[in-house]
């Protein structure tokens, strides 16, 4: 592979110049998000620069222990983000969701590396961190929808849940209706993306591979594989997240604990 063309300092300067378009627009229209935009841009630059140097070393040493640890750090921050974005309390959810993410993402990434990419060193930094990151990022998004919706719907439609319990349903039988709905909500975006893939947009991974020197036919094979891996990890992680958190979120009488939510209003 010859790799993508490096961007010179002049290129980065020109890139910064392009930032003037959103910046001036936002300022001129008095949208009140100028400060946010600047802070976010700076954060992006600093975080990416740091991660760039960091990844240089990770790829250079390619040590299984470091790779594994870094992947765990990635999983942990994804889990924090899922919980933070779904109105659920961290202390109730962090352990079960962490366990769910570790199981789901490790399984899918290792399966991908071993059976699909067929590499000998399945903890290889490039594959583990790059592929793992894509799978994880999508698990994150689906879980914010899936897990968040599950508990939100339970709180909103508590009457319906009680009704099912009163019919003699076990806790799991009564929760099935809610779990099904949150699965659909979580999977729908990925299913929609797959249906337009390649026509509306070239997925990020393909773009990266093509710039990196892969021929399109190799790039699409990876893209197909990664989308299926994403579906698998989505289904696995949501199932496990719901299954594991449900154990801690209910009183023994079957009622939902109100203290698991950050906001107290309905």
């Amino acid at each position: 592979m010859n790799g993508a063309q490096d961007l010179s300092m002049f290129s980065m300067f020109m890139c910064g110049l392009m930032l003037l378009i959103p910046l001036l627009g936002v300022w001129y229209m008095k949208l009140g998000i100028t400060k946010n935009l600047i802070v976010s841009t700076l954060r992006m630059v600093i975080q990416l620069v740091l991660i760039g140097f960091f990844l240089e070393y990770i790829f250079k040493y390619n040590n299984w222990l470091i790779n594994l640890s870094w992947f765990l750090v990635m999983i942990a921050s994804a889990v924090l983000s899922v919980i933070k974005n779904s109105d659920l309390k961290l202390n109730h959810f962090v352990l079960p969701v962490l366990l769910s993410f570790i199981l789901a993402n490790f399984f899918v990434v290792l399966y991908f590396n071993y059976f699909i990419v067929n590499i000998n060193f399945i903890l290889d930094a490039k594959y583990m961190i790059a592929i793992g990151g894509m799978i994880l990022g999508n698990s994150l998004r689906s879980n914010v929808i899936g897990l968040g919706d599950f508990y939100k719907a339970l709180r909103k439609d508590e009457q319906l849940y009680f009704y099912k319990l009163s019919l003699g349903a076990t806790k799991y039988e009564a929760l099935l209706h809610f779990a099904k709905k949150s699965f659909v909500a979580a999977l729908n975006p990925t299913i929609a993306t797959m249906a337009t893939m390649g026509i509306v947009s070239l997925p990020g991974m393909m773009t990266g591979q093509i710039l990196g020197g892969s021929v399109p036919l190799v790039a699409i094979k990876y893209q197909i594989a990664i989308m299926i891996a994403i579906l698998a990890s989505t289904v696995l992680s949501i199932s496990l997240s719901i299954l594991f958190t449900v154990r801690y979120s209910f009183h023994k009488t079957g009622t939902l604990k109100k203290e698991i939510f950050r906001s107290s209003n309905n």
Partner: peptide, 29 residues
């Protein structure tokens, strides 16, 4: 042992026959 009919008519969605079937498919019933 108790059959509860709530005033809240949020009893579920979908086909009526399937609704009865779902109730009767619970392990207890």
């Amino acid at each position: 042992k108790v059959a509860y009919v709530s005033q809240d008519l949020n009893i579920g969605r979908g086909n009526v026959q399937a609704f009865f079937d779902e109730t009767l498919s619970l392990k207890a019933n």
